[in-house]
Design a binder for these strands. Sequence first.
DNA 1: AAAGTTACGTCACGTTCTTA
DNA 2: TAAGAACGTGACGTAACTTT
Length: 378
Amino acid sequence: MAYESVDKLQNALGEQVFHYTQDKKKAAGRALGTMVEIITYYLLKSWGFNNSTSIERGLVEYGNEEISHNVEYSLHPIIKDYEVIILNDGNSITSTKILNALKQITDISKFEKKTNNLLDKHNILRNACTIAESIDTFLLTSFKSFGQVDHKLYIFEQFQKPYAMFECKRVGVEEGTLKGPQTIEKAKQGAYVAKAASSLQKIRTDNGEKYGIIYRSDNQPYIKPYVELMEEIIYSSDSELLKKFILTVGVVSNHGNWFTAENQNKELKVLAQSYDWLIFLTDYGLAQFIDDLIFNPAPEYICVQQDFKNSYSANKKRNVFTKVRMDLDADMALLKYFTENLSRIEKWFNVIAPETKSLDDLKNEITELRSKNWRGIL
DNA sequence: AAAGTTACGTCACGTTCTTA
DNA sequence: TAAGAACGTGACGTAACTTT
């Protein structure tokens, strides 16, 4: 690999790409944050969660609906699915067009239309495209197949209430310092949301053990060691326990000194005890992604490099390399890259919490949650 | 002095409103 | 319908400040 640390890589990006900004390191850091988001999202897609995943939805706090937080990715129960065909007229695929097609096969009067385009006329895909909302559900659409004459689309009705959420965070090293970061505020912000979202709440015993508490519908508290209780909820079919449970997952990226096995920084400790799961994208993983797709792409991935370059230049119009807006070719290239390298990519992550678990366990837990009979539960 | 906290500037994205 | 402005939220890095 060309760079021995992500910090070096960030500075190189600053010089090569973000020279037009006022603070090139900061801008490069922001772009690296976008990469962490994209890696996480395409990992979820590769795990088969494409059609369950929403982006930046407002999530209300458990028991306190007046406060909501935009969460990066939330996984929602699918309750109905449809397929429609849209003529390929070369123009954008608007929610109006999709809803008009859907109207032919089902009653959509309870929905309020959104104005999102699944694809715009410059072939920019909108990931997790919401086309309409009702009180407790919404409609999310995606491509089933592309055609010269027409496209086949999926439409999924899903519950507003998710069963899992993911947040991505990255913090860099300050120039001139060996230790960092100084800012724990971001970690606290993430920790607050993680602690406020789910019905499974965290408490400490007097001995410092982490316990969970969850209320049943008769208002009786149910208290047990945290991970034990969490597993009990995930693998149960008890609607009282599952109803407002949200598995919270944090994804943080290394900056070279957050994480050594024996010495975690305060920031990391705060996050590790606040999310149900904290997974760690290593320097190595982030650098591999950037090297394989942006610095030294194989021929089939050059479009990714191009879209990245086009997205970050002094005279760019709109970014086409984000979790939501992604050039269609880059999307397909990313899916190919993740599918073909999935086991290698999964090794980019370390599991910080729960201590004894693996990434496979996480996949199993969200798969288990997806499989619940949510219509009966909610 | 070092460690920790707060404030702030810049960049970015999503939504809604406005304009054409 | 499309593009852009305005606004709200969040991300990231670091200067300035406070506490130990």
